[in-house]
C-alpha cells in the first residue's frame, strides 16, 4: 500500500485540460455484454427450472415444431458471424470497400434470419398464451429477435457512416469492432437458445 515517493513527484504536472486517455470502449462493450449475458442466463435458468420440474415437457398437447426452417435460420445466423469477421479483418487492412461489402452481407443475412423467424411465428400452431412452453418459446425467441434487430440497426448505422470519407481506418474503427463483438454475442445466445428450445 506504499505509494511511489519523491522520485515520481518530480514528473512535473502538465495541465492537459482534455487529457487523452487510451480508448477503453471495447472493454466497456464487453462489460455491457456480461450484463446482457446474465439477463439471458437468468431467462435460460427459468426455462430450465420449468422444463426440468415439469412431469412432461413440453406440456401435453403442444404441437410438434418443425426443425427445417429454424435449422436453416441457425446456419444463416452462424455463418454471418464469419462474414462479419471478414469485415473486421478488411478494415484492419484499411479496406473500406471490403468493410462495406461484408457489412452489407451480414445485414442481409440478419434480415433473412428475422424474416424467417416471423414466417415461423406466423405458421406455428400455438400462440403466446397457449401453455407455459409456448410462452417461454415466444418470449425467449422474441427477446433474442429484438437483439438481432438491434444488431442489424447497429450494423446499418456503421455501414452508413463508412460512406463518410475517412470515418473508419485501420487505426480507428471502434464502431466496426463493437458491431462485430455484439453480433458474435447475439449469435452465441442463439446457439444456446436453439439447443434449449428445439433440440432438448
Amino acid at each position: 500500500m506504499q505509494g511511489s515517493l519523491a522520485s515520481e513527484m518530480l514528473m512535473v504536472g502538465h495541465s492537459q485540460a482534455h487529457a487523452e486517455h487510451p480508448d477503453h470502449r471495447v472493454f466497456g462493450i464487453l462489460m455491457f455484454l456480461v450484463a446482457e449475458g446474465c439477463l439471458f442466463l437468468g431467462l435460460f435458468m427459468a426455462y430450465l427450472a420449468y422444463s426440468l420440474t415439469a412431469p412432461i415437457w413440453p406440456p401435453e398437447g403442444t404441437p410438434e415444431r418443425e426443425l427445417l426452417l429454424p435449422g436453416i435460420n441457425t446456419v444463416i445466423l452462424l455463418s454471418s458471424s464469419f462474414v462479419i469477421h471478414k469485415a473486421g479483418s478488411a478494415i484492419k487492412a484499411d479496406d473500406v470497400k471490403g468493410l462495406r461489402l461484408w457489412f452489407a452481407l451480414t445485414a442481409l443475412m440478419g434480415a433473412i434470419f428475422l424474416a424467417g423467424q416471423l414466417y415461423e411465428y406466423s405458421n406455428l400452431e400455438f400462440g403466446l398464451t397457449t401453455n407455459l412452453f409456448a410462452s417461454t418459446f415466444y418470449v425467449l425467441t422474441g427477446f433474442h429477435g429484438l437483439h438481432v434487430l438491434a444488431g442489424l440497426l447497429f450494423i446499418l448505422a456503421v455501414l452508413w457512416r463508412s460512406f463518410k470519407p475517412g470515418h473508419y481506418s485501420a487505426q480507428h474503427h471502434f464502431g466496426v469492432e463493437a458491431a462485430e463483438i455484439y453480433w458474435h454475442f447475439v449469435d452465441g445466445v442463439w446457439v444456446v437458445l436453439f439447443i434449449l428450445l428445439y433440440l432438448l
Binding site: 437468468g42 403466446l128 407455459l132
Partner: peptide, 20 residues
C-alpha cells in the same frame, strides 16, 4: 439483469396473459 428478466416475465403475466 436477472431481476430485469424476472420483471419482464412478470410484466408478461400482468399484461399479456401468460402464466410464468
Amino acid at each position: 439483469p436477472v431481476l430485469a428478466g424476472a420483471l419482464i416475465l412478470l410484466s408478461f403475466d400482468l399484461l399479456a396473459g401468460t402464466a410464468f
